[in-house]
Design a protein around this nucleic acid. Sequence first.
DNA 1: ACAGAATCTGTACGCTGTGCAGAGACGGTC
DNA 2: GACCGTCTCTGCACAGCGTACAGATTCTGT
Lengths: 267, 267
Amino acid sequence: MSTEAGRRRPGPRRALTEDEILDAALSLLDDGGADAASVRGIAARVGVAPNAVYTYFPDKAAVVKALVERLLGEVDHDVFADRSRPWRERVEALALDLRAHLSAHPGAVGLMIGGPMDGPHALTLNERLLELLADAGLDRTGAARAAYLLIVYVFGSIALEVAAQHAPGPLPPESDRIDARTRAFAATPADRFPRSAAAAATMAGYVSTEQYVWGLRRILDGITAGVTDVPGDPDDGRGVLRAAGPVPEARTSRSGRTVDVLDDAAG
Amino acid sequence: MSTEAGRRRPGPRRALTEDEILDAALSLLDDGGADAASVRGIAARVGVAPNAVYTYFPDKAAVVKALVERLLGEVDHDVFADRSRPWRERVEALALDLRAHLSAHPGAVGLMIGGPMDGPHALTLNERLLELLADAGLDRTGAARAAYLLIVYVFGSIALEVAAQHAPGPLPPESDRIDARTRAFAATPADRFPRSAAAAATMAGYVSTEQYVWGLRRILDGITAGVTDVPGDPDDGRGVLRAAGPVPEARTSRSGRTVDVLDDAAG
DNA sequence: ACAGAATCTGTACGCTGTGCAGAGACGGTC
DNA sequence: GACCGTCTCTGCACAGCGTACAGATTCTGT
């Protein structure tokens, strides 16, 4: 009661908001890479003394954490709530949206995967994925494992894509980066690395959207390998799927054995 | 001719070797986390003035790069060269070996995925994966895409696993970390996150070896979905696989369409 | 013996995160 | 309207960071 929400605290009005500080941090990050978001830089950007920042956040780690949370929150709730669309489409839309949002701030990506990522927005992302994968016909445990597999893939892809870029600042267009990689891989010594030299064009495309979607689809294929497809639209795998626990009738799958092993640990 | 390999350079003998510096950096990293490997700390550890390090490496980034390269080199060439073993087994052995080696140095993991990872040992890893996946029956392009998918998964998993740990220093035993996560997830509000709350046990196991292997197997399933299995050992998928390019006869698969899209970009 | 080159040290500069003391502004109570 | 406690922000300071520069020392090749 005494500390109700609308009451102003004593002392002078705050010159800033937390959001303005996060804005400044993000723009510094975008301009100068992961190391550019210094407390002093943020303070200068918003026009206060460096230690004034500590009125809003206890330390720099809290600034980073809040920024990561905000970036994760920008993607939630929108794209994949529409349950009329097939679940695979929604997963792909979510994955592409995450990639677009995060790789727009390459300097922030390193901070993201450098911390625990256990805030409410991260949990919301997990929750949405669980809903999505339940629609796909996966059981509770399978959906959770699949959700983390997807999270690992999405954040791993983005992290490696950003890390492949040497210079700070915004990511160049995808085609430019692939061209640069093509030129770099052209120097691969074919005597020591014959297969890599032969696959140089594909390797240059490791950072492409096509590779990203290709890998995502292989994962979705693997996730649904133990789940039987309802016939009706075999062309694109968009058919509604129904759950199959041990699936004793459909192609004795390795997933049956795997699930048992995992249940030992998680249960 | 003038600068032949065995010739000593003028000047006093070096007090150190590059390897000793990397040893010092790694041990600092292991003790104190990613920020502990300072140039001054390294120099103190090996008993020289801070700037003596710059006799061996041009800057700190070069030290980190060399360290990453060395860690990547520790895993190559050994585990998965034995072509008599089934390829899935070899991929799993490689993935588990990589995870064991890298998560033994959690402080180094962040440095690893923070840089381009384009050294010779990284290329060797790619080359070995290409060989392995060629044995699995994938064509050149498919093998390269699958290799990167696996790399993303392995490094993404390890990065997220390490990032989930708040304190620096060596990773606690897996069971302890899962216990801690179980306790943390017990506080998940079931009203706002019903599915996450219900899957808390599985989510606690996100950092487990079981989850890691489970995800790896789903990926391998997805990679080989467009490749027909030779009957003979259907129980574990260890049978030798034969290549299938467009696979027009085996279950009209989405991979056919996907590959076309990708060939447009990479070709 | 001498020239040149390499190694290492001492010193210094600008940067980082952040703790402490103090000045000023404001809300709540008299 | 005066006062008090609390909050905000500043100036200063400290320890640590990466690293550039100058100089002393030690070696190799001539």
